[in-house]
Design a protein around this nucleic acid. Structure first.
Lengths: 147, 147
DNA sequence: TCCTATATTGGACTTTGTCCAAGTCAAGAT
DNA sequence: ATCTTGACTTGGACAAAGTCCAATATAGGA
């Protein structure tokens, strides 16, 4: 059983076949599937699994901090199981493919060659998240480097 | 007439009432409306303007580099007319409100107090954009399975 | 004023995601 | 091993955001 499944069990999760399959799909490096991609891969192992269960489970994993939800373009969100190691993302503006990258030095400087994965990098954005004065404190996201 | 409209005319744009109204809506600082918000404000001045025209015009403004399209959460894209001055964004994870911020020093360090706009900042993301080896250079958006 | 390429429109359609009532099942209790 | 129960799953309806298209209107040059 994967580390993820063990941690989930320790947190009182009921280990259903659906959750097991989703956890299996989300195993590996540079995995950044959309919900539909997760569903397609889950169906290959458990044909009757529903889209709703995939959305439910992904949402729970995000809430638990086991998976990071990434929105880069205006299309489907992607789910990154590499939640326990701070990193940034390199995104293809053509097909949406993503890679995990680690920063060294000033983020606004060029990515090191060995972190480019063959991409031609053309842009970098920095976005801060928080709560505005009207919204106040609420379901805060976890910091991954912000003070 | 605004600077924006003058630049557009210089580029050969036909200055329709719809485009004029949209340009007026997109005037000011810290303006980050969604397409629907732009539409609502445009309708107040030109009741018969359609959603399609708002989407068309915003898309054209983005292609011309006069407006920046920002996707921060999984919700509607926002359109930032502050395209000629490099800056980053501060986003409320509650309501989606956005502020323009300027970096000083290491982006992963805390935002300076005077750039926080009363927000409680909890996270920062750095994302690089480019073209992956399969997509190569170019502007075409070809959907293919990511990864 | 006329002409016509360009722009606009409404509505159908797609993608992505949420919500819900009803049925199912994991796992602790017996 | 079986029972019980509340958490989990399901399919389908629904919603938000955005795209596409054929028909219509119009800005701006001739």
């Amino acid at each position: 059983m994967s580390d993820l499944l063990r941690r989930l069990r320790e947190r009182g999760w009921r280990l259903t076949a659906q959750r097991r399959v989703i956890a299996e799909v989300l195993d590996g490096e540079h995995v950044h599937f959309t919900a539909d991609e997760v569903h397609a891969r889950a169906v290959a192992r458990l044909p009757e699994i529903s889209r709703a269960s995939v959305y439910n489970t992904l949402g729970e994993l995000v809430a638990l901090g086991e998976v990071i939800e990434v929105t880069t373009d205006g299309r489907a969100k992607r789910y990154d199981p590499n939640a326990h190691q701070p990193h940034q993302h390199l995104v293809c503006s053509g097909c949406g493919a993503m890679r995990d990258v680690r920063l060294a030095g000033d983020p606004l400087r060029a990515l090191p060659e060995d972190e480019r994965f063959g991409f031609v990098v053309s842009d970098v954005t920095v976005t801060y998240y928080g709560r505005c004065p009207e919204c106040g404190a609420g379901d805060l996201r976890e910091a991954s480097g912000a003070d």
